[in-house]
Simulated assay, not measured.
Amino acid sequence: MTVTTEGRPRGAATDAAGAASGGRLPGAVAAEWTKAWTVRSTWWNLLGAAVLMGLACLQLAIFTVNANENDDPADDKGVVGAGTIAIGAVDLVQFVLIGLAMLLITSEYSTGTIRATLQWIPRRGEVLAAKTLVVAVIGGLAGIVLAAAGSLAALPLLGHWGEFEFPAWLGDVLAVGVYMSVIGVFSLGVGALLRSAVGTLIVIFLIVLVVPASLQASGITAMERVADFLPAVAGAAFMRGESDAYPPVLGLLILAAWAAAALAAGHVALNRRDA
């Protein structure tokens, strides 16, 4: 048995450190929260997401006005809710927050700091649970703030083609926050499984964007139905509150199932592989 210089087993020293920081899981969450906010990548990702959300919302507002006021009635958007502009911008902005979520674990493998993390928190399930909670909170709060700011910034450009009804707007903003939270957890799970930032980003990009777009453009009904059950398509149905395939709440459940499956796979990989 390995013994510390004070004569206590190393495991006891680790447990004592966890207890001093608020208990096993609370202490792990506190540690992961601190790590998340003390690395530059978190701030750069959030800044990038804010800039991209602002630009995307402004562009979508201009596009809506131009579509309504041109001579072609086929592309008229009509009066749109301010919150729907932010939902439309999610297609782009989500990849910045996905990058933030996956880096919270893949960066530790690339730098080797995962060894220190697992030394201080040897129960690997607690490590993943703590990271999951941190990613969910950061993603959710960032999604809400970005959606609120972006939609309000776009409202003046929409003019009489935009409407602001607080209950509907709040529902849209919260829906974006929920989506960003869950898609972030999904990304974390894939990152825990693959460990590589490049590999994780490629897989997520394929699952979230390329595969569903290809299936939807196939013109084959069976493939289009498969696309309906991919995470981004299900999440979009939830945020927009509409879907021809299933109720919006089922879209959230499908997205959550993808996140849970990714976490489960990541947990298995974390337990079976050496750091």
Rank of each mutant, 00 (worst) to 15 (best):
A269R: 10
T38S: 14
Q119Y: 12
P247K: 05
I204Q: 07
G177E: 03
A168L: 09
V96F: 13
L47R: 09
P9T: 10
L188E: 09
G189Y: 01
A197K: 11
A262S: 11
E108P: 06
V51L: 15
A130S: 11
P9D: 06
L141N: 01
A234W: 02
P9F: 07
N66R: 14
L103K: 02
L58W: 14
A213G: 12
S107C: 07
A20E: 06
A192N: 10
P247M: 03
E165V: 14
I85K: 01
I183R: 01
T113G: 05
A260M: 06
R272V: 03
L47F: 15
I183V: 15
R10A: 10
Q216L: 15
F205M: 12
P247A: 09
N66L: 13
A17S: 14
L97D: 04
G7H: 06
W44H: 06
L55R: 09
L201N: 08
A256C: 10
P167L: 12
P231Y: 06
A13L: 11
R10L: 12
A217K: 13
G112L: 05
A12I: 07
S41N: 10
Y109S: 13
L250E: 06
Y109E: 13
D71R: 14
G27F: 04
H267K: 07
L133M: 11
T34L: 15
A175M: 04
N70A: 11
T200C: 05
V134W: 04
R272K: 15
A30I: 06
A256N: 03
A213M: 13
T113M: 12
P9Q: 05
D172F: 01
L174A: 11
L128D: 03
V29I: 15
D172M: 07
A16S: 09
G199T: 13
T14I: 15
L215V: 05
R10D: 09
A136P: 04
G11A: 11
I98Q: 01
G23V: 09
W161H: 10
W258L: 06
S218V: 09
V145G: 05
G143A: 04
V182C: 09
T132H: 12
F205H: 07
I87M: 08
L25F: 12
L255Y: 03
D172N: 15
T113P: 05
A236H: 08
G54R: 03
L255N: 03
M180A: 10
T132I: 12
A256P: 03
A89D: 00
A136I: 09
W161D: 04
M1G: 13
H160I: 04
S110G: 13
L174S: 05
P156E: 05
W37Q: 12
A197G: 15
I114P: 08
N45W: 02
